[in-house]
Structures are given as C-alpha cells and as structure tokens.
Amino acid sequence: MAIIQWYPGHIAKAEQELKRQLKNVDVVLEVLDARIPLASQHPQVSQWVGSKPRLLVINRQDMIPEELHSQWVAWFQSQGYSPYLTDAQAGKGIKSLLKAAQKAGEAVNEKRRSRGMRDRPVRAVVMGFPNVGKSALINRLVGRKIVQSARKAGVTRQLKWVRISDQIDLLDAPGVIPPKLKDQAAAIKLAICDDIGEAGYDLQNIASDLIDLLKQLHFTDVLENRYHLEVSNFTGSAYLSALATQRHNQDKERTARELLNDFRKGLMGTIPLELPPELV
C-alpha cells in the first residue's frame, strides 16, 4: 500500500484564513466527490462549522451509476445531512442547490428584520478537498466563468467572495486537507481520483492500488474490456507490469499515468470506489 502525505504551504495558509472567514458565513456547502463521498469528507469540517446549516454537495454524479444516486442521498439523510447531487461541469442540480442555500440562510434575515435591520445577501462558503469541483460549481451558480477551474488539485490558491445575486454571496475557498492523512485507505482513493496533489504520492503505486481496488469491488471486467489483458491471476503491481510490457515497451510510469487518466476521465465507465455502508 502506498504511503501518502500532502500538505503544501498554500493549503495551510488557506485553512487558517477559512477558519477566520467561517465566522462571517451563514451556510456551508461542502463539496464531495461522488466516486468517494466518504473519503472526500474532511474529518474536521463538523468541528469548524459547528451549528451552521451545512449542505453536502455530491458532485460528479455523472461518474457513478444512476442507481447509486438515490442510495447515497438516502444514506446521508439517515446520518442527518442535507445532500444534493450535482454535475458542475454540465450544470445539473444547480438550481435546487441554490434554492436550498438561500432557504438555509433565511433565518439570518428573519433575525435582522426582528431587530429592524434590512435584509442582506446570505453568505455561503463552498469548501472541500482539492479538485472536487468547487470552482466549477461556483461558475455554474453564478452563471458565468468567474473563478478559475481545472481538473487538477491546487488551482484555487486564495479565498474570494463572489456575488451571485442580491440574495446570496459565495466564498470560494481553496481545497483543504488534513495536515496528516491518518486514514491511508481514504488517502489512496483521494489520490486515485486526483483529489490531492501528485507530489504526495508515487504514480505507479497508486495505479497498482487502483487495480487492486477494482478487483476488490468486482470491476475486473472494466480492466479486461479496456486493456484486453486478464487480471484475475495478477496483483495490482504485477498487472501494471504486464500491461506496461504489452502496451508501452515496459514503461510502467507511462502505463500508470494512462491507467489513472482513463479512470479519472471516465473512460472506463461509471465506477464508484465507495458504496453506501449498508450496501458494502
């Protein structure tokens, strides 16, 4: 198993600023990766957020089978959360999320009115691990490209307030990640999904871990259909070596990158790396 640690300076700085700004926030939108909704939940967010309304945004719904959508929503609801499925790239699920954010913040203006004060825009923060789609989500909520967005970790470096409408302001926060990744099984899933920076892991180890995980989840047909190489008798590492010999003249690094890119771009199909706990 690969050992993964990644905590660049800009994330440490952003985390401190985010904690300060949370005092000014009315509602929290925590963005998760639909392929790994549990691994992409930051373990300290509950502590930071306290009693503020918190909506879970399960982004990249297009990258998991449709039958899992309602199952994840039901599971998170059973845990006391308000989950919303989105595909920020395609703009799906955005309107209902925006309405929910405004509704969650209504109590602020009710209190202001009771004191004879004017309404102000609800202040929401969009937060989560790097590269789970926060900036793409904000661009969809605003209706135009207002923050930089790319499918790689670490693009957003600073906190930035964005006015969506007269009703809501959004704080775009850089990805946050624990200083130490104690749950290495979760860290491996984050690396596979490109939700932490490449500097934190070895590409070949993570590609091997992906193969082992796909075998464990009974997705061996996905590998065999795409690469025309039977996987059952191989460990992840041995399969990567065999694949490198077959495809790239024994270049394991190139093969590892190709394998991970195929998964990350959805070229293998809609593959969840986690299931709601009662389905496991």
Rank of each mutant, 00 (worst) to 15 (best):
V162N: 01
I138H: 05
V147C: 15
K152V: 09
K111R: 08
T156Y: 10
R118N: 14
S114P: 00
A136C: 06
G116I: 03
F129K: 09
R112N: 05
R113Y: 00
R112S: 08
V122S: 00
A150H: 13
N109G: 14
I164W: 02
A153K: 06
M127V: 07
P130L: 12
V125Q: 12
V122A: 01
I138T: 00
R112L: 04
L137E: 01
G154S: 13
E110V: 05
L159M: 13
R144Q: 14
N109I: 07
S149V: 14
V142E: 02
S135D: 03
I164K: 11
V132C: 11
A136L: 07
K111M: 02
V162A: 03
V108L: 01
R120Q: 15
P121V: 14
L159R: 10
R120L: 13
M127F: 09
F129M: 14
P121F: 13
P121Q: 13
M127C: 12
R140D: 05
G133V: 01
K160E: 12
R140K: 14
G128L: 05
I138R: 03
A124E: 04
D119G: 00
P121N: 14
G133R: 04
I146M: 12
E110T: 08
N131E: 09
K134Y: 04
G143T: 03
R115P: 00
Q148A: 15
K152L: 07
G128S: 09
G133W: 05
N131H: 13
I146W: 08
K111S: 02
I146N: 11
R115V: 00
A124G: 14
R157K: 15
K145H: 08
N139F: 07
R120D: 03
K134D: 05
K111L: 07
W161I: 11
I138W: 07
R144I: 12
V155G: 06
F129D: 13
L137V: 03
P121S: 15
K134R: 06
P121T: 13
R157S: 04
V108N: 00
G116W: 05
K111C: 05
R112W: 08
V125S: 10
R151D: 14
I146R: 14
I138Y: 01
K145C: 00
V126W: 13
W161R: 08
V122F: 02
K160G: 00
A124W: 04
V155P: 09
S114M: 03
Q148N: 15
S135G: 06
V155Y: 08
V122D: 02
N131W: 10
R120T: 12
W161D: 05
G128N: 11
G133K: 04
V122C: 05
V126P: 09
F129V: 11
S114I: 03
R163Q: 14
A153M: 03
V147D: 14
D119N: 07
G116E: 06
G128Q: 09
R120P: 06
S165L: 11
G154Y: 13
M117V: 07
M117S: 05
G143H: 11
V108E: 06
V122Q: 01
V155C: 03
R112G: 07
V108I: 13
Q158L: 11
E110C: 06
G116D: 04
R144K: 15
R163G: 02
K134Q: 02
R113D: 01
